[in-house]
Write a protein that binds this DNA or RNA. Structure first.
Lengths: 341, 341
DNA sequence: CTGAAAGCGCTAACAA
DNA sequence: TTGTTAGCGCTTTCAG
C-alpha cells in the first residue's frame, strides 16, 4: 500500500530522526555537516522525493506560485498574454520558484489551489474566483487589471496615458483629423485607450467627432470594417490611432488595397509594440507596454507577501493594497508623418 | 493559527461527522438526500473549501493533471505547442479535470508534482525528469515524442509518413528536382521529416543529391539562408519541401523577392497546416498534423491509467506501453504545380 | 545539534 | 446510512 519511500525510510537508513531529515531538506542551518552529508547520501541512495502535499499540509514552504489566465479563444496567440507569461516565468526562475500555469477553462467559483500564492492575469469573467481566493487568505496579486473594490495588489499598464501620448504625437505632427479604432470595449484596456484618445483631442482644443471613433474588438476583421467606414467620411481623417498593432497592421493593408499610402496619405499609430509591428512592410509607430516589467513587479510583490505571511502567520490586510500603473513608451517608426496640406 | 475553516467545522455546523462531509464532497452515493442538503448548506454558509493537499495526502482523488512543456524560447509562439495545449485543455474540460501547465524553466531532476498524472509534451532535455516521474510511479504519458527505452505510453505524429506523402505528391506532379529544408535536427520531428523525404526520393528511383538538402532550424532566418543556397544550385530545384509552414512562408517571400513565382517557377510544400499557411498570399500546400487528436488520446489514456491505479493500487507495469503514431493528412492548396518543361 | 511527539485536513476502512 | 478512528508524509515546537 505504501509504495514510495518516505522521510522515515530515509531517517532509518541514515541513522537519524525524521526531524533531522526534514531539516536537511529545508536547508536549516543547525545541522552538523557530517550529519547533513549522511542524510543527503541516504536521499540519493533511496531516490527519495518529498511529498509536496504533505509538505504543504504540515505548514512547510511552498516554492510554487500559480498564474491564472482566462482561457479565451486565442490566449496563446496573443503576443500580450504570452509576454506576461514569459515575464512571470523569468522572475520565477530567478527567485527559484516553481511556476504553475492555471488555465481557467470554465468560469469557476474556486480554485483548487496548491500553491503558495496566485497571480490573476487578465481577469475576464474571473471576478468571483478572484474574490474567493482573496477571501481564503491566499496571497494574491492581479496583473493587467485594476480591481478597485477588492483588497488586492494590482499591476496594470497605463493605457490611458499611453493612448494620450500617441494621439498627442499625432497632434504635434500637425494632424487634427484624427480617428480612433477601438478595441473590445468590454475590456478595461480598450476603454482606457479610448479615454486617452478623447483626452488628448479635447486637451488640444480639437473638436471630438463621434464618427471618427469606430468601435472594433481587437480582431482583424473588425478593424477592416472600421477603417472602411472611416474612409467614407468627409473630411477624411489624416491619421488613425488604432487600439492594437494587430488591428493597425490590418488597417495598413486595407489602406494599401485602396491605393492609399502609409504614412503619406494617412498616418497610423498602433498599440502593443508587438514583433509583427517591426516586420510589417511599413514599420509601425506604436505604444510599447512594459509587460515584462509588469510581470516582474507582480511576482516580486507576491513573493514578498508570501514571505511575510510565513513570518507572521497573519495576512497583512491592514496595509493598503498597491494599485500600480506602469508607464508606456511611444516607439516612433515609419507609419506617421505630417498631413499633406 | 488555524485560520481556514475545515471539515470538522463543517461537520459540527451541520450536526454530522466529518466522514459524512467527506462523502458529500466526494459525491458518494450513500448519503441521505436530506443529510446531503444540510451539509451542502453548511459548506456554503461557512465558505468551506477542501484543502487540496490534505485530500491528496489522505489518498483521495486528484482531479488534476499536469502538462510539462519545455520552456524553449518561443514555445508560446509556436502554433504547435499552443495547439497541443488547446487539445489537452478541451479534453480536460470534458473529463472534468483540472489542468496544470508546468513550464519546465530549467532542466530539473524531479517535478514537485501535485497532480494525479502528468503529460510530458515535447521532451527536450527533460529526459531525466521524465524517467524520474515514471520511477516514482506517477501516471505518465508522453506526447509528440516516442521514447523507446522507457515504459511509458507515447503519442506522436507520424512525421516520417507525412513527409513522405508530401514528397510523393510533388513527385506525382512530375517533379524530380526536389529539395528539402530541414528543421532543427536536434529535434526528433525534424529528423523524421528528413527521413521521410529521403525515403520518398529513393523509392521513386530519383537520385538523392546531398546539396538539395539544406539544414535549417525552424526559424525564418535559417530558412532564408537555406533557400538562397538552393537557388544558386544548378540544376535548380523545381520544388522545395520545407519542414515547417513558418519556414515555408519565408521561402515564399524570398522567392518572390528574387522575382520567382510560386508555384509557377518553384513549388513549395510546408508542414504544420498552421493558420498562417492559409492567410499567406500563396495559400500553402502543407501537411496537417492531428495535434488535437493527439492531445485527446493522450489525456484519455492518462485518465484511464489514473482510474486504474486508483482501483487496484498497483501500477499496471505488466501491460506493454502504447507507442502510437498518428497519421497526418496532406492539405493541397495553391503552392504547387507541375514543373515547367 | 538532534530526537520525540503533536498535529496539518482529509479519506477510508470498520463498526454501529 | 452514518460515526469512529487510524493513518497519509511532513514540519515544528519543545526537550535534551
Amino acid at each position: 500500500m505504501r509504495s514510495t519511500v518516505n522521510i522515515f525510510d530515509v531517517a532509518k537508513y541514515a541513522g537519524v530522526s525524521p526531524a533531522t531529515v526534514s531539516r536537511v531538506i529545508n536547508k536549516h542551518p543547525n545541522v552538523r555537516p557530517q550529519t547533513r552529508q549522511k542524510v543527503e547520501q541516504a536521499i540519493r541512495d533511496l531516490k527519495y522525493h518529498p511529498n509536496v502535499s504533505a509538505q504543504r499540509l504540515a505548514g512547510g514552504v511552498t516554492r510554487t506560485i500559480a498564474v491564472v489566465i482566462p482561457h479565451y479563444e486565442g490566449v496563446f496567440y496573443s503576443y500580450y498574454a504570452v509576454e506576461i507569461l514569459r515575464g512571470v516565468g523569468i522572475v520565477c526562475d530567478a527567485l527559484g520558484l516553481d511556476l504553475i500555469l492555471y488555465v481557467a477553462t470554465r468560469e469557476r467559483e474556486a480554485l483548487p489551489i496548491a500553491a503558495g500564492g496566485v497571480i490573476f492575469a487578465d481577469i475576464i469573467s474571473q471576478y468571483n474566483c478572484l474574490k474567493n481566493t482573496i477571501e481564503r487568505g491566499i496571497p494574491t496579486v492581479v496583473i493587467n487589471n485594476v480591481v478597485d473594490d477588492l483588497p488586492v495588489d494590482c499591476f496594470a499598464i497605463d493605457n490611458r496615458g499611453g493612448a494620450k501620448e500617441a494621439v498627442e504625437y499625432l497632434i504635434s505632427l500637425g494632424h487634427t483629423k484624427i480617428a480612433h479604432i477601438t478595441g473590445d470595449l468590454n475590456t478595461q484596456s480598450a476603454v482606457d485607450r479610448l479615454t486617452g484618445y478623447k483626452e488628448a483631442i479635447l486637451k488640444a482644443g480639437i473638436e471630438l467627432r463621434p464618427e471618427y471613433i469606430q468601435e472594433a474588438d481587437f480582431s482583424r476583421v473588425s478593424a477592416r470594417v472600421a477603417v472602411e467606414k472611416l474612409l467614407k467620411l468627409r473630411p477624411r481623417p489624416t491619421a488613425i490611432f488604432v487600439a492594437s498593432d494587430e488591428m493597425a497592421l490590418e488597417v495598413v493593408s486595407v489602406l494599401k488595397e485602396k491605393g492609399l499610402n502609409v504614412p503619406r496619405d494617412i498616418s497610423v499609430v498602433g498599440f502593443d509594440n508587438s514583433p509583427s509591428a517591426v516586420q510589417s512592410p511599413v514599420p509601425l509607430t506604436t505604444v510599447k507596454q512594459p509587460l515584462l516589467e509588469m510581470a516582474r513587479e507582480a511576482v516580486e510583490e507576491l513573493h514578498r507577501i508570501i514571505e511575510n505571511k510565513k513570518g507572521r502567520h497573519i495576512y497583512m490586510s491592514h496595509v493598503a493594497p498597491h494599485k500600480v500603473y506602469l508607464h508606456t513608451e511611444l516607439v516612433v517608426r515609419n507609419s506617421c508623418q505630417p498631413p499633406l496640406v
